[in-house]
Design a protein around this nucleic acid. Sequence first.
DNA 1: ACCACATGCTGAATCGTGTCAGCAGGATAG
DNA 2: CTATCCTGCTGACACGATTCAGCATGTGGT
Lengths: 342, 342
Amino acid sequence: MAVRSVTLVDVARRAGVSRTTASYVLNGRAERMRIAPLTVERVRSAVAELGYRPNRSAQTLRTSTTSTIGVLSDHVASGHYASSMLTGASAAARRADHLVVIGESEGDVDLEALHIQEMLDRQVDGIVYARLVTSTVIVPDSLRDQRVVLLNCVDEQRSYPALLPDERAGARSAVETLAEAGVAGDVWVVGDDPTPHALAGPLRMAGIREALDELGTPLAGVVSCPWAARDAHDAVHHWLMSGVRPGALVCLNDRVAMGAYQALATHGLDVPGDVSVVSFDGTELATWLRPPVASVELPYTALGELAVEALTGAEELTPSIRWVPMGLVPGRSVPDRERPFH
Amino acid sequence: MAVRSVTLVDVARRAGVSRTTASYVLNGRAERMRIAPLTVERVRSAVAELGYRPNRSAQTLRTSTTSTIGVLSDHVASGHYASSMLTGASAAARRADHLVVIGESEGDVDLEALHIQEMLDRQVDGIVYARLVTSTVIVPDSLRDQRVVLLNCVDEQRSYPALLPDERAGARSAVETLAEAGVAGDVWVVGDDPTPHALAGPLRMAGIREALDELGTPLAGVVSCPWAARDAHDAVHHWLMSGVRPGALVCLNDRVAMGAYQALATHGLDVPGDVSVVSFDGTELATWLRPPVASVELPYTALGELAVEALTGAEELTPSIRWVPMGLVPGRSVPDRERPFH
DNA sequence: ACCACATGCTGAATCGTGTCAGCAGGATAG
DNA sequence: CTATCCTGCTGACACGATTCAGCATGTGGT
């Protein structure tokens, strides 16, 4: 701070060349500008000896680029998993020599506007507009004409590039997991579509129905409840009281699966002995249950990475939806076909 | 982008004054510089009419300040709760008209060094050096002479200001919760200190022991296990097999509590009817258990806020540890004295 | 001997702002 | 009438980089 830092002039002086030449070397224009290899070498070693680091603000002032990506989200944190989106974003940013600045709107439009203003003032090179829960959004006008990628959401006009988890394919793989294990008996879904703008529910349901239909074993039914552990417990508990004995449960998220586990235990039903269970989200919670539940993973890390890669890459951004594959976090909640009685 | 943005020159021209005068007005130096009130007004309205926003990079180039705080962490995400630290940081930053840039080192020293370099290159006004798990750290040399606040960690030399959860007081309040509920029978701790540099375990143990000693009912014993659901289940399960019947369990974190719940259920023990349970961390997991477990909350949001406030504030940063209070997330895992039988 | 051309480099303008030093002109003092 | 002071403003340099246009010098062709 106190010591005046090394500037390009210092480097140039040390290398015995002009500032211009030094600049060309550092910006990889040495070739095109016909700088002699020997001179290039002199500049390079001057940089190394002096520990020169370019002043980012000065560069920004000239070039209007900052090597910075803004990530704007309604809730960075609250969702246990969503924050791994930041992990992905941060990693991708580093690879591209960028930095990530974050803004959390907490669902408040005014707060969001302020964050956007701050980011634009700082001339971020691109903005990731993210939602915790997959949903349809109205992108603020202030982002028009900016480099924007929507993460886990889409705008109604489809005028921005968007990244969404491929829930449909994910749902199919959940059903396939059950099929491969040779699950006998009826397959039921637990949960339903809770909020109006949320997209995951319907897509998951569609994928499940499709896959089951193709297998010739249509969905036995749906136990409807909000996507929370407590609600799921109560719903499944009452449902089991009626005497139904399902072969498998497809829980629409891990918290629902947790509630279902609790209810199954109360009724003396063993997982996977009596009932198989698969779930969605792939949170750590899935691994904490006994037995761990097989869960279709929300690809938050990949979403974060892909979004930042799109923004830092040179390619044009085209408005279109990209469906990001969901992996399966394996569990012991489905019988193992190889060793069925282990 | 295409349209050249409004600069201070435009404002000055419109107000019919020099750039200097406009600058003085905007920096609140009008008074000291004896700018006539009428002139001030003219500049103000020119700013409003033109929608002028100062160019941050140009300001930085002159002043060497960026109104930006860097948050450097080993794992922003993986810990379900830690990310609320970012929520706090982001909120506090907004209040101070600052922005937060993040860097996740994933425990890799080289990666950390790169992130630090990027942040220093961008001349952040301060850095929050954070750890997911409370621990003793060695702060990289590159941060010497920078404005740094340690969050959830301390350096051995105690040469930086540090924020730590007040685990000791938190542990006492956990025990008090049990005492107030009139818990009968022996109190046992589940868990132990798992990793060498982690600080939370010993502090929690110390607080628990102190509080119990003061109550005249010393700790009955410790069921030792790593801080994970599965390990806790196995440990508690085996322990219960030996016939012990505890009055209350103090679980050293929520995942341990989850494992303990599973084992208690296997042995037909009811919470809180047969055994009371309190826990630490205050994650959402605590609320998902049946019944929800009372848990001493890690104050991540507050830590984030306080760290950023310290860095954006004008006060000197003094090397010292500040213990941040931990709240109690209420649960139904302890009998309610008012209505003991529900 | 002359022009054309390639080679290897540099001078100077520019980005938008902050701020020191100083300048006109009127009021006041001696 | 001159010297001094205050009021209200402005000129010009600096921050550290990028980049266009141009300037010597050598080299080959006719």
